[in-house]
């Protein structure tokens, strides 16, 4: 420890005293051991208990079992996920700070005029872990039971409302893109709380909505909502009745939400490889698959290298959809 000799301010002295006391408590033989030698902090830029948080916790639990060190989830939802992502971008690239992010990560560059970080340059992709199909639901009061009839109905009645959980959210973009490819003229109605959007959909104030499966389930069971399609590339494992939009001729309508793990740029390759390999094992684990499926998420693995290639493509794709959806830059 470097200290100026001579006059030591009482404030500094006290800081030191306390520092030493706790340093002794916290000291651990961390230095040059095999990664991971200490707890890993995983920043999740969503609030605790949200869908992304649930996914992160599932993955983190498995990851920590396999790596043998605790992974601590740090929820940092401030500033539309930007603050959390920025914290990782500026963290020491030693493998002990990771980011678990959702589709918002790829949408942000097109949505915000300025970001404090560079989505490509400041991060090292570790692996993509999920694919979450968004289902297209309509209220059964419409008495329509397939997508073709719904599109016909919507064309006859322009000005239908569709709900989302906010401007530029993956739900909004899926809805807006559907509006575009099917040639409808629907109104976007954003909600702060998904619960209210759902209630308005069930009541019929809103005509359609893309959303993950679990919140729909009770209403599907109760016969209040009908699922017409899914934004995933394939039928989701948890609800095989939902046909992908591609099956209805909307060729490039593949917009699942997805989650991936990132590390700060400059993280040693050996660490990235180890994490990547472990995440692949997790993605292949049937028990994890079943657990994730229960919360409406399919495991979907893409390696660090594949994710590196995928990122710019996805960023470009969402930038195009944001333009189509006519979302003003924030």
């Amino acid at each position: 420890m470097r200290l100026k000799s001579g006059n030591l301010h009482p404030l500094g002295l006290c800081g030191l005293l306390a520092a030493f006391t706790v340093a002794v408590l916290a000291a651990s033989p961390a230095a040059a051991q095999e990664y991971p030698a200490k707890d890993i902090r995983m920043i999740v830029p969503f609030s605790a208990g949200s869908g992304a948080d649930a996914a992160a916790r599932q993955i983190a639990t498995r990851l920590s079992e396999k790596l043998g060190k605790p992974i601590i989830i740090d929820n940092m939802p401030a500033g539309n996920t930007i603050v959390g992502a920025d914290t990782v971008a500026k963290a020491t690239p030693d493998g002990y700070t990771l980011l678990f992010h959702a589709t918002q990560f790829i949408v942000s560059p097109a949505l915000f005029k300025t970001l404090p970080y560079d989505t490509i340059k400041d991060f090292e992709p570790v692996a993509r872990v999920t694919s979450q199909s968004l289902l297209l639901a309509i209220p059964t009061t419409l008495k329509i039971d397939n997508l073709k009839d719904f599109v016909a109905y919507a064309k006859k009645n322009p000005g239908l409302n569709y709900a989302s959980t906010g401007l530029g959210s993956s739900l909004h973009l899926a809805g807006a893109y559907f509006d575009h490819v099917a040639g409808l003229k629907a109104n976007h109605i954003p909600y702060k709380a998904a619960a209210q959007a759902l209630a308005d959909l069930v009541r019929g104030d809103v005509a359609y909505m893309f959303y993950p499966y679990p919140p729909f389930k009770p209403h599907i069971d109760a016969g209040k909502l009908k699922i017409l399609g899914s934004s995933g590339a394939e039928k989701p494992a948890f609800f095989p009745e939902a046909q992908p939009m591609t099956a209805f001729g909307y060729k490039d309508f593949v917009l699942p939400a997805w989650h991936a793990v990132y590390a700060p740029a400059g993280t040693p390759k050996a660490i990235i490889d180890k994490l990547d390999k472990t995440l692949k094992e997790i993605a292949d684990d049937p028990e994890t698959r079943a657990k994730m499926s229960a919360i409406g998420i399919d495991l979907y693995y893409a390696s660090s290298a594949e994710l590196k290639k995928l990122l710019p493509q996805e960023i470009e794709k969402y930038a195009r959809i944001i333009e189509i959806a006519d979302v003003p830059k924030q």
């Binding site: 006290c14 306390a18 520092a19 006391t21 706790v22 340093a23 916290a26 601590i72 989830i73 740090d74």
Partner: peptide, 26 residues
């Protein structure tokens, strides 16, 4: 100084050890 030391020990005990807050102590 005593108060500061006491509060520090208490908070570290409660938040870092008790609640497992991920914040680094140093």
């Amino acid at each position: 100084l005593l108060l500061a030391a006491g509060l520090t020990i208490f908070c570290v005990a409660v938040f870092s050890y008790g609640l497992g807050l991920s914040l680094p102590l140093f």
